[in-house]
């Protein structure tokens, strides 16, 4: 999520697109386990597909302004398992989601109560790979209450938990999030602690949790730092995501980080583990991820031809020539 930061004049200059990094990761497949596609355009979907992203997880989150009623939560959750999943499939990307009440809106207790009532309707749905993103923002009592209730929900459902760690007072907030998860009897192997940095990673790994890193300009990790993390800590239980949303963020953060890792001498196997395999291992514990589906969603046109129906039957989106001024 975007916040104020130290912007220099250089940061405000228009950028130049250089897609040469794509050649370095040609043929590689990526899984972005945290990206808010409802906030992104079709151009992003196409660029992600072109860069090798085959599957992603969209955690339920805060939409940038607070919701005022339970129905808008219901519609949002519905859109994650409905429209957005379909939209993604049109670009050949398999879309999963995690469902939960985010920490900011947990502070509206009247509404939070109503949201808790409808959550069980959604967490058992197909393609829901966890409860998330939940945890602390401001670290208030209300946040803690609904964090705990949702941990119980996840435990009952046997689903992984995706924990959002706070921007402010991050180190203590991360420790506290893990303490509470353990207190509720969760297996750390079922918990993905997100938005780590150099300060939090050691404890998260030492305690047996999954450590996710968000490559997000200005406010979270940069990918050069990410390369150093992998060099120092290896690949076990580490995964990379973009957390791209409505702020200045980059939906290509995972493939770009893979390209940078390759450039800086990290082995292909190791790159695959942190940009693809570990996310599947962690969230696959939901029983909802089947790698064969990644190929199936790509071949949507082909399979529909073979079943004898017309080609564009809900199939992939046709390409347009972006450099042409003619629009047909």
């Amino acid at each position: 999520m975007c916040c104020s930061h130290n912007i220099t004049e250089k940061d405000l200059q228009p950028g130049v697109q250089d897609a040469s990094y794509l050649s370095r990761i040609k043929g590689m497949q990526f899984f972005d386990p945290h990206v808010h596609m409802t906030s992104r355009t079709t151009d992003d979907y196409q660029a992600m597909a072109d860069a090798g992203v085959v599957a992603l997880i969209e955690p339920a989150f805060w939409l940038g302004q607070p919701r005022t009623g339970v129905d808008t939560f219901r519609d949002y959750y519905s859109s994650l398992i409905g429209w957005e999943r379909f939209r993604s499939s049109q670009f050949g990307i398999k879309h999963y989601c995690t469902i939960g009440l985010n920490s900011r809106e947990a502070n509206n207790e009247v509404l939070a109560e109503q949201v808790m009532e409808i959550l069980p309707l959604f967490i058992y749905k197909e393609g829901v790979v966890g409860v998330g993103e939940i945890g602390f923002d401001d670290q208030t009592a209300a946040e803690e209450k609904y964090y705990r209730l949702q941990l119980e929900l996840a435990r009952e459902a046997g689903l992984p938990v995706q924990i959002h760690t706070p921007h402010r007072d991050k180190k203590r907030g991360t420790t506290r999030s893990m303490d509470i998860a353990l207190e509720h009897g969760l297996d750390p192997a079922m918990v993905i602690v997100d938005h780590n940095n150099e300060e939090t990673v050691k404890e998260v790994l030492d305690r047996g949790f999954w450590a996710a890193f968000t490559i997000y300009p200005f406010t979270k990790m940069g990918n050069e730092r990410m390369v150093d993390i992998v060099k120092q800590y290896g690949t076990e239980r580490i995964m990379v995501n973009s957390a791209a949303d409505w702020g200045i963020s980059d939906p290509l953060a995972v493939p770009k980080t893979a390209a940078l890792m390759k450039e800086q001498g990290i082995a292909d196997d190791a790159i695959k583990i942190v940009t693809y395999q570990n996310a599947i291992a962690a969230f696959g514990q939901s029983g909802q991820i089947n790698e064969a589906d990644f190929a199936a969603v790509k071949e949507i046109d082909q399979s529909q031809k073979f079943s004898g129906n017309t080609v564009l039957r809900g199939g992939q989106q046709p390409r347009i020539d972006k450099d042409s001024i003619i629009i047909r």
Binding site: Y77, S78, I81, G82, R85, F122, K125, E126
Partner: peptide, 9 residues
């Protein structure tokens, strides 16, 4: 219907 995902619909 109100809370259905694609396959449920």
């Amino acid at each position: 219907f109100l809370a259905a995902e694609v396959n449920e619909l």
